[in-house]
Every structure is written in structure tokens, then in C-alpha cells.
């Protein structure tokens, strides 16, 4: 190594962690061992670095700086947290509002169940089944009773069913035999059309269907009896009498 190179490397040599690498450091040390001028330069460089390092670090840190920084950090973190809180709060509020609006729209468009009416109807049906059927039919502008002497103690349901695309009043009785038999009486207005076969098939293969066109007091209505069993006897008051529509 020449003196010129040695002087250059002396400027870059660090005295705590040598980053020149073992090759350069070794060659430099070898040169310093045989060159008094460069060795003197090396000592001077060490001395200069030591003095400069001490001076460089001799900066008094203001005593209140740490507290200022902590206060600033707390304030900044508080602002960040508040920002997050506001954003989260805003999102929650928006979600609640949306849910509320959605629920409101759903509630206002949904058909309301009139629980009082339902209770009154059920009570009425239980206390006076024949009367409740009569009032129901009259409300539908139909003869206010059925053309057969049904046992109203066997009444199960009175209401409307959708039959072949039209809402048709229906009265349903259960069988007195204790089996799962039923009799449904559909009451069509005389001017309405229906498919008897389709109506029978819709009730199951074991069901029978009979049609009675209303006369006299029952004029204006056509009754379709769909029932299980051979006839309607299990559903009538006088079960020993005739089981077919008159």
C-alpha cells in the first residue's frame, strides 16, 4: 500500500467498528507499521475523531423536551382515537338508521294481523259454529247456511281457499269417525266456472266430489262437496240418515 492510499483509508477507518474489511485493514496496519509519517497521521486521525465525536455529541438536550413530546403524542393519539371513534360512531349510526328505515318500510308494507279480530272470530267459531258459518257466508253475499245438516261440532275451519285462480269460500269439517277424514264444502257463485275433476284431484286420490246447484233458498250458489269416505254421513247431524246432498 502506498502512502496516498493509506491516508485515504485513514480518513475512512472507524475506530469502533471497522468497516474497511479485513483485507484493507490488514494492509493498512502493515503500512502503518513501516511508515512513521502515515503512522503519525493515523494517530492524529484517531485523536481528531475522538475530539470531534465528543464535540459532536456535546449538545445539551432541553430538560422539558421529553414531556413536551409525550404531551404532543398523547394529544395526537387522542385526536386519532377521536377520529376513529367518530368514524365508527358514524358507521354504527348509519347502520342503525338503515336497519330502522328498512324495518319501517317492511312493517308499513306488511299486511297487519288484526289479533283482536282473529281472537273474536276464533271465540265466535268455538261458541257458535253454525252462526259463525252463517255470518261468514252472508258477508260473502251467499245463502247464510249450508244445504246439508252438517254437525257444526265437527267444524274445523271457515274461510277462503284459492281454487283454480279464484278465492272461494270454504267450510271444512272433520270426520266423526276419529280418523283423518274431512269434508270440504266449496261455495261457488252460480256464474263462476270451475273444473270439478281438477278440484277433486287436488284433494288426493281418496277424495270424492259432489256438486249441488242451489235451489230456492240456496239459489245463486253452487256447492261442491269434496270428502273422504263413501258419503257425507260421518259429517252430518243425522248420521243414520241419507249421506248425499238432497
Amino acid at each position: 500500500m502506498e502512502c496516498r492510499d493509506a491516508q485515504f483509508y485513514l480518513r475512512l477507518r472507524r475506530h469502533t467498528t471497522d468497516e474497511l474489511g479485513p483485507d484493507v485493514a490488514g494492509t493498512l496496519e502493515g503500512h502503518l507499521a513501516i511508515c512513521p509519517a502515515c503512522a503519525a497521521d493515523g494517530r492524529a486521525a484517531v485523536s481528531f475523531d475522538r475530539a470531534l465525536t465528543a464535540a459532536m455529541r456535546a449538545v445539551p438536550v432541553p430538560s422539558g423536551l421529553r414531556e413536551k413530546l409525550f404531551t404532543q403524542a398523547a394529544s395526537a393519539q387522542g385526536a386519532v382515537l377521536r377520529h376513529k371513534l367518530y368514524r365508527t360512531g358514524g358507521l354504527v349510526t348509519a347502520a342503525v338508521l338503515l336497519i330502522g328505515i328498512g324495518f319501517g318500510v317492511f312493517s308499513s308494507t306488511r299486511p297487519k294481523a288484526d289479533s283482536e279480530l282473529l281472537t273474536r272470530t276464533a271465540t265466535d267459531q268455538a261458541n257458535d259454529p253454525a252462526g259463525s258459518v252463517g255470518r261468514f257466508l252472508a258477508a260473502k253475499k251467499l245463502p247464510d247456511r249450508l244445504p246439508m245438516p252438517f254437525d257444526y261440532d265437527l267444524l274445523v275451519h271457515v274461510g277462503t281457499d284459492e281454487v283454480q285462480g279464484q278465492q272461494v269460500p270454504v267450510v271444512v269439517f272433520r270426520s266423526s269417525n276419529g280418523d283423518s277424514g274431512f269434508a270440504k264444502v266449496y261455495i261457488f257463485k252460480s256464474d263462476s266456472r270451475f273444473d270439478l275433476r281438477g278440484l277433486q284431484d287436488a284433494q288426493g286420490s281418496h277424495a270424492r266430489a259432489q256438486v249441488l246447484v242451489g235451489q230456492d233458498k240456496f239459489r245463486g250458489a253452487t256447492y261442491v262437496f269434496v270428502h273422504t269416505g263413501r258419503d257425507l254421513k260421518p259429517f252430518l247431524l243425522n248420521r243414520n240418515g241419507g249421506g248425499n246432498p238432497a
Binding site: A40, F48, L52, M56
Partner: peptide, 20 residues
């Protein structure tokens, strides 16, 4: 240049931080 004078083979006294 990259190099300072060579006639400095002496202990560097303390450097005044303000001068630095």
C-alpha cells in the same frame, strides 16, 4: 481534497462544540 495536511502529528485538543 480528500486529505488534510500531514503535519498534524499531535494530540488534538478538545474541540469547542460551538466552533464545530
Amino acid at each position: 481534497g480528500d486529505l488534510a495536511d500531514r503535519d498534524t502529528d499531535q494530540e488534538m485538543p478538545e474541540i469547542d462544540p460551538a466552533k464545530l
